[in-house]
C-alpha cells in the first residue's frame, strides 16, 4: 500500500517544530505501524537525512514506551498500542498525521519522543508499598478476596504509556493515577499508606502541570489496556476519605 505521512519534526527540546510530508510506497498490510516507520527511516538514512526519532522498546504491547498520536487518535484507530497496530487498519492512499503526545508535563525531546518522567515522579510520590526486604513473608498468609484481586489486577494492567493524558482535553493524568490507586488500594498490603498515597500522588500530578479532570472519559476510550473510568471514581473517593481523615 502507498501512504502519505505528515510527521512532526523537531530537532531538540527548545527547537521550533513543524509538520513534514513523506510519501511511503510498497508498505505491507502485515507490517506494524512502527515497522512502517522503520522502512521510512531506512530510506531517510540511505538519503543521508536525519531519521525520525520515536520511542519503542518491547514491541509487544507491554512496556508502554511507544505512543503516537495517529490522525488524532492516541495509538491510532484500534484499542491497542502503536507497536501492536498493523497497517491493515489503514487504507491504501490514506494520509496519516503523526504527532507526539501533547501535554506541557510531557515536553518533546525530539520529533515524536516525549519526556514522561513526570509519570515516574508521580509513582515515586506514592505508587508503592513499603515492605521489609530480606525476610519476605509467606504470600498465602495474607488472604485477598477474589473480587478484590481481580479488580486490582485489572488496574495493574496499566503500562504507563500516557495515551490517557494525550487524549484528554484537559491533559489530565487521572486515569493513570487512578489505575495505581485502585491497584494498590484493593490489596491488604496497600492499606497502611492509602491516605498518604492519594494525597501525595495527586499533589505531585498537579505540581507537574497536568490539568484537572472534568470526567469527559476520552482517557478510557484511548487506553490500550482498557482501564475503566471507575478507577478515577476510586481516586476521588480515596481523596475524599483522606480529607475526612485530616490529610
Amino acid at each position: 500500500m502507498n501512504l502519505t505521512l505528515k510527521i512532526w519534526r523537531q530537532t531538540g527540546p527548545s527547537a521550533k517544530g513543524a509538520m513534514h510530508t513523506y510519501p511511503v510506497t510498497d508498505i505491507s498490510e502485515d507490517m506494524s505501524f512502527l515497522e512502517m516507520l522503520d522502512v521510512l527511516n531506512e530510506q531517510l538514512n540511505a538519503r543521508g537525512d536525519e531519521p525520525i526519532a520515536f520511542d519503542s522498546d518491547c514491541r509487544e504491547g507491554i512496556c508502554g514506551a511507544c505512543g503516537l498520536m495517529i490522525s488524532g487518535r492516541a495509538h491510532g484507530p484500534e484499542v491497542t498500542t502503536t507497536c501492536q497496530l498493523h497497517m491493515r487498519s489503514f487504507s491504501d492512499g490514506e494520509e496519516i498525521t503523526i504527532e507526539p503526545w501533547r501535554a506541557d508535563a510531557f515536553p518533546v525531546i525530539k520529533d515524536l519522543v516525549v519526556d514522561r518522567s513526570s509519570f515516574d515522579r508521580i509513582i515515586q510520590a506514592g505508587g508503592f508499598i513499603s515492605a521489609n526486604t530480606g525476610a519476605a513473608p509467606e504470600a498465602h498468609s495474607v488472604p485477598v478476596p477474589k473480587p478484590a484481586a481481580d479488580r486490582s489486577f485489572m488496574a495493574a494492567a496499566c503500562i504507563g504509556c500516557g495515551a490517557c493524558v494525550a487524549a484528554c482535553p484537559n491533559a489530565s493524568a487521572m486515569l493513570f493515577m487512578g489505575a495505581k490507586i485502585t491497584h494498590l488500594g484493593e490489596l491488604p498490603q496497600g492499606q497502611p499508606e492509602r491516605d498518604a498515597r492519594v494525597v501525595s500522588m495527586v499533589s505531585t500530578h498537579d505540581h507537574e502541570g497536568f490539568g484537572g479532570c472534568t470526567n469527559v472519559g476520552a482517557c478510557s476510550d484511548a487506553c490500550p489496556k482498557e482501564i475503566p473510568l471507575d478507577v478515577i471514581n476510586q481516586l476521588n473517593k480515596d481523596l475524599r476519605h483522606a480529607l475526612t481523615h485530616g490529610h
Binding site: 484537559n170 490539568g211 484537572g212
Partner: peptide, 26 residues
C-alpha cells in the same frame, strides 16, 4: 480555576482536529 489549568496543561495544540476533543455530553 480548572479551565485555566487545562489551558496551561497543553499550550501546543494538536494539528489533527480530531485529537483531544470533548464528548457531546461535556
Amino acid at each position: 480555576y480548572l479551565w485555566s489549568r487545562a489551558k496551561g496543561a497543553r499550550t501546543t495544540r494538536y494539528v489533527a482536529k480530531e485529537a483531544a476533543r470533548v464528548t457531546l455530553r461535556s
